[in-house]
Design a protein around this nucleic acid. Structure first.
Lengths: 149, 149
DNA sequence: TATTGTTATACTCTATAACTATA
DNA sequence: TATAGTTATAGAGTATAACAATA
């Protein structure tokens, strides 16, 4: 009665939460050369040049305030820059600087090392599967996440 | 040059972080009938009766302080209870009360609904695979996470 | 009037160290 | 002296609302 080996998942959420916490705990500023949040933002900027701050809010699942604070830090480090959008001068277009790209590359290396360590027991095929499934999950869980109005 | 379809993972960490954040954001106290942390702790207690607080620290990836605070809350709600371990009176053995089990069952239902919603596009086979792979990852990422001494 | 970003503020969470009691 | 848990406190993270500039 203590173990139900049906198909009942004993908790995807517990699993995800644990992994996320452990990953975050290991992604120290020392290891990445920057804070984990900075890494996520720069990583997004590399893939989406000239992002608006609202875009970043969605990508980082952070509120407007958090994005502002983080961008202040990044600009102080000369890793990103905010320019006014000529088409709508209320908007900022955020871009990564060359220094930002360099810093990101170092952090990416650290991330790859960490992932390699974590995925050591998992075959390339399985890794691809895992990535594909997680992408699906991410899509589903992000889509209807209505911003608290 | 913008898309490298090698086998380079564009970021398992970003994926996990996003999913974890989104799940946490959706697991409101309203939906679960309790805080997400409480849910995780009770969920662990159901599977491991009479856990010590150190055990809980490891399971929740929280420090001693956080566990104490959370147990204070749970005890105030009459969902758990700390008893002295007769074999070592420094230790506490934490147990779930009947009321705790009831509250957990409601929360479990909410969790299952949420997971069902999230995993809708994923087949049972794929779910099993996802769960298996995540368990492997969790094991690897948790194992060498030496507690900062 | 609505929207984008900023500032100010409060609230929560997490981490650290000192303390109590037991070993 | 070392360990399990507690308390106190500070720091980081997060959420909320008021504000300025622009649409």
């Amino acid at each position: 009665m203590s173990k139900e080996t049906d198909q009942s998942e004993p908790g995807l959420m517990r699993l995800i939460t644990q992994i996320s916490k452990a990953l975050h705990r290991r992604s120290t500023e020392e290891a990445l050369g920057m804070r984990f949040k900075s890494f996520l933002l720069l990583s997004y900027l590399r893939d989406h040049q000239a992002a608006t701050q609202q875009e970043l809010e969605g990508a980082l699942l952070a509120d407007a305030n958090a994005v502002v604070l983080l961008l202040n830090e990044l600009e102080a480090a000369r890793w990103s820059i905010r320019r006014r959008d000529p088409d709508d001068r209320r908007r900022h277009l955020v871009e990564m600087t060359a220094a930002g790209r360099q810093a990101l590359e170092r952090a990416e290396q650290a991330r790859e090392n960490l992932e390699e360590e974590i995925l050591q027991g998992i075959s390339p095929d399985e890794r691809a599967t895992l990535y594909r499934l997680l992408s699906k999950v991410a899509e589903a869980v992000l889509q209807p996440a209505e911003p608290r109005s």
